[in-house]
């Protein structure tokens, strides 16, 4: 597919293949496989408990799969030469200790990748947290915590963004900001992979869709392909997951 990389190619192909995860005798993932490509926003959709977070955690090297591979540009996450500049991850919560200030949190992450302190100020401004940077994370609202997580993910200006339920806990303004922002990232040739259990929220944001239910992929393709004959993505989703989603 990528015969001859075009000029300005940033990389960032996510390839997930045959992931199996069992926890306490229960099979959480039963052979998950899909691809997320540069220049596109890929929506990873499924009801709560379908295995979305587990898949993303394995992709990020946080959890271990019993079988299968999850690669970024052909490399497992822990082997990436420069993870902070390659992948930015936004998982649930802020990912920061509550007694540190937002700025101090970003500073240690920046330091781990050899990024200058000026970059910390840049991402703080970018997500609209500049005024709260000196406050302790414990005093942040849910939305501010999410913004801090996004700022952390953006520190290395990575070619891939992986976001788990990025719209959770955001106010309408925040939702609009994140949507526009993610579209812009994809437009500039980067890869965006985001999970969600909210179908309606995503139809305007995603290019490709992967639907997961009970640890199995039940549909994947472009938004139009997955929506198919259904009225919209939400209807398609409920038909595909036999109404197990709420």
């Amino acid at each position: 597919m990528w015969s001859g990389r075009p000029a300005g190619w940033l990389g960032g192909v996510i390839t997930i293949d045959g992931l199996v995860k069992r926890r306490g005798g229960k099979e959480i993932l039963a052979g998950i496989g899909f691809e997320a490509r540069p220049g596109r926003v890929t929506g990873f959709l499924g009801p709560n408990g379908a295995g979305k977070s587990s898949t993303l955690r394995i992709l990020l090297g946080l959890d271990r799969a019993q079988a299968g591979t999850a690669l970024v540009d052909g490399v497992p996450y822990p082997a990436l030469p420069d993870p902070v500049r390659t992948v930015g991850a936004v998982l649930d919560g802020s990912g920061a200790h509550r007694s540190r200030t937002g700025r101090a949190h970003l500073r240690w992450v920046a330091r781990s990748a050899g990024l200058p302190p000026a970059r910390v100020e840049e991402v703080l401004t970018l997500v609209g947290l500049a005024d709260a940077a000196g406050k302790r994370v414990g005093g942040y609202s849910l939305g501010m915590g999410r913004r801090l997580a996004l700022a952390t993910a953006l520190l290395g200006d990575p070619s891939v963004l992986v976001l788990d339920e990025p719209l959770n806990g955001l106010d309408p303004e925040g939702i609009r900001f994140v949507r526009t922002f993610l579209r812009d990232r994809a437009q500039s040739g980067r890869t965006v992979l985001l999970s969600s259990h909210l179908m309606g929220e995503l139809a305007e944001t995603v290019d490709d869709v992967v639907v997961i239910d009970h640890g199995r992929i039940v549909a994947k393709g472009t938004l139009a392909e997955v929506t198919g004959a259904h009225r919209n993505l939400e209807d398609a989703f409920f038909a595909l997951t036999s109404g197990s989603g709420r």
């Binding site: 990020l60 990436l80 902070v84 990912g95 994370v137």
Partner: peptide, 16 residues
């Protein structure tokens, strides 16, 4: 293990 910081640590420095 407070505030999910471990995830930030291990995504920034994955060689555990």
């Amino acid at each position: 293990y407070t505030g999910g910081q471990i995830r930030t640590t291990l995504t920034a420095m994955p060689r555990r």
